[in-house]
Design a protein around this nucleic acid. Structure first.
Lengths: 212, 212
DNA sequence: TAGATTGTTAATCGATTAACAATC
DNA sequence: TAGATTGTTAATCGATTAACAATC
């Protein structure tokens, strides 16, 4: 199964949730394709990796399909999340409403600066990095988000791995090395901007080539 | 040319910059592959879309190759960036050191909440959304980063397009529609987390399938 | 039944990688 | 020259999409 299938499932799920709200209770792959910009065959293929969810000649029940997708994605229950770094970015993330809406609960915020311990990031008390192992175990945290400066990121990742975490989302501009049973995803602001920079620099040339 | 080539160029560039610092002035595609985890043929192919930068039998001059890549990416000069949203996320982004290091200069911060106008986000004065067009033109801003809540994102995107911006990086959890000459890239925290959720939910099953 | 739409196979498309002639 | 490494072609691999039989 392509890795991109998972990201698309998230997109279908969001679209279905909106349709549910609009009171539309049946939808075809073609209609859903129109709304998401994803090819209808692609959508059916993506679903086919996991089972059969529609009725031939009819389509899909929006709420039923969404429930199935959420189950596939492991979103049929809450996930407890830790944020590491109580600086601007950590604060922004811990206050991000989208997290709770998608049932990701910020259950701990860590910072290595002990002067921050005991302060609050939104409603969550900041803990010292010494406590990572204890807090992760006690709270049942399974996902960590790294929001520290590049220099600190690798040390933080090691601490998180040592605490038993298997899923890390990294916002620090650093290349982290983790054991292969740990799933690491990177969000790299600079690479995003460099893509835009390339586009701005080359769009005229590309347009010319396309027209030629 | 694959879109992924551009992201890989960013990675090569970073690796080359490190090598320069280490005083290594020549490198082969194979060595660079070892350091980046990217296949050496891939790297040579990526470069081949843009020209010939190496010497057969020898390799690449690190500083020369990096200069060429930076030129290709449009990183041989500064880019002025506007951040929209002076909340937690906007503040975090405008204080992000990586931006200046990569020659992205935060030249304006906008917020539609006029009570914030005149405050400072780091060293940058917060402007009202009414001023977008003027400030963008005056400062020569070409890239905008959206860091507002989902509800406001589409209105903001419209304002930015109206102000003539052609490159937008969107952190808001909303699907934006922009004219096709505008390059839009999305950073979606929830999709990242949902990928991790899928992994945590299914890794045992997958491991079993692979072993079977 | 006729029309519609799924689930899935087969075809296409595109991206990655291997292989190797060119050449330093 | 012999060894090394590029630049590029050809082969492979994988993902997307078209097509269609199954069936509601």
């Amino acid at each position: 199964m392509p890795a991109a299938t998972i990201s698309r499932l998230s997109i279908y799920s969001r679209c279905l949730a909106q349709l549910e709200i609009s009171g539309i209770d049946t939808i075809s792959s073609h209609e859903l394709a129109d709304r998401t910009g994803i090819n209808p065959a692609q959508m059916r293929k993506d679903l086919s990796y996991f089972g059969q969810f529609g009725k031939r000649g009819v389509g899909y029940k929006t709420s039923e399909l969404n429930k199935n997708i959420l189950k596939i994605l492991g979103l049929d229950h809450e996930w407890k999340v830790a944020i590491v770094g109580a600086g601007n970015l950590g604060s922004a993330l811990s206050g991000y409403r989208g997290l709770k809406e998608h049932r990701f609960i910020v259950s701990a915020v860590f910072d290595s600066d002990k002067s921050k311990t005991g302060r609050y990031c939104g409603t969550v008390r900041v803990s010292s990095m010494d406590e990572v192992k204890d807090v992760v175990a006690r709270e049942g945290i399974e996902i960590a988000i790294i929001a520290v400066p590049a220099e600190a990121a690798h040390w933080v990742a090691n601490q998180l791995v040592a605490a038993g975490l298997k899923a890390i989302l990294n916002f620090a501009p650093a290349t982290l090395i983790v054991p292969e049973d740990v799933k690491l995803r990177n969000v790299d602001l600079s690479i995003e901007l460099e893509n835009l920079s390339y586009f701005l620099t080359n769009k005229d040339r590309e347009a010319t080539v396309e027209n030629a």
